[in-house]
């Protein structure tokens, strides 16, 4: 086990801290992110409002911090669901092979051969807009890379001696699959989750930007940028700070992903 460098720990700590603060935000002595104050509309950053206020007088600092909860939460949930679906599909496809494998892999190819954003947009339009829809859209596109990776790993694992040994002592297919093969793939799925988080975060924000994510007045980074777009010439802080928060978080996730990629030599 190598020591973990500060370039992995610092970004990770930043994201975890941001997430915890945003979850417990209502309990902390900050301003209410949804409180409309018509006396202080479009104020530039000052002592009272460090990031300024938006066109309805809401404090942008409060909205940026509390928006982290949804943006990060949806990215992580989306990655988890993708991992579970992709894990199951890849496990079964790799182990049983044959027609099932062909069908699953054709679906994977079909999804991958399509611009993923458009697919996510299409799904978000079919279902009513909201954070659950965005999560589903992320998972519908995201499971494919997990399926591909896990399938590949299973294909190499299933020819190994310990699988033959397990079969020789009379283990059933289910037992081999769940107790002998699956545990070998769990760490791999977590590694891929870490690599994919940055991408999930950006896709979530893009869907929110297009108006398909969390609905007003709930603040997410993507929807704040979208809602304040029209004021950007006179009040650039309304768009600047949510964007910085979003980019910084994505950068932290990507730094984590880079480290994981290098250490476990996983190429998604």
């Amino acid at each position: 086990m190598q020591t973990i460098s500060k370039w992995t720990m610092l970004p990770l700590l930043f994201v975890v801290a941001l997430f915890i603060i945003s979850v417990f935000f209502p309990l902390l002595p900050f301003q209410d992110p949804d409180r409309i104050d018509l006396d202080s509309i479009s104020k530039s950053p000052c002592m009272e409002h460090p990031f300024g206020t938006d066109s309805k007088g809401r404090d942008i600092f409060a909205r940026v911090i509390s928006g982290g909860k949804i943006s990060i939460g949806v990215a992580i949930t989306g990655a988890l669901i993708s991992a579970v679906i992709g894990f199951a599909a890849g496990l079964a496809a790799g182990y049983f092979g044959g027609t099932f494998d062909t069908v699953v892999m054709s679906i994977v190819d079909l999804v991958l051969s399509f611009p993923s954003l458009l697919l996510a947009v299409a799904i978000s339009v079919v279902l009513p807009p909201g954070i659950y829809t965005v999560t589903i859209a992320l998972a519908a596109v995201g499971w494919t890379s997990f399926a591909r990776l896990i399938r590949g790993r299973i294909m190499t694992l299933k020819d190994m001696a310990f699988v033959d040994a397990a079969r020789a002592v009379g283990c059933s297919d289910t037992r081999i699959l769940f107790l002998h093969l699956a545990p070998h793939c769990v760490p791999l799925a977590f590694v891929l989750m870490g690599i994919k988080l940055g991408g999930f975060l950006i896709t979530e924000a893009t869907l929110s930007f297009l108006g398909l994510g969390a609905q007003p007045p709930t603040a997410t980074w993507g929807s704040m940028i979208s809602a304040n777009r029209t004021y950007v010439l006179n009040a650039p802080w309304m768009v600047l700070y949510p964007g910085i928060a979003l980019s910084l978080t994505a950068l932290c996730f990507n730094l984590l992903g880079e480290t994981l990629k290098k250490r476990y030599s996983v190429e998604p």
Binding site: I202, A205, G222, G243
Partner: peptide, 18 residues
Amino acid sequence: SLAGLSVPVFWSAIMIMV
């Protein structure tokens, strides 16, 4: 290059436009 991957296009597009 890592920063370039982390900045969402919709935000950088608006900033470039501004």
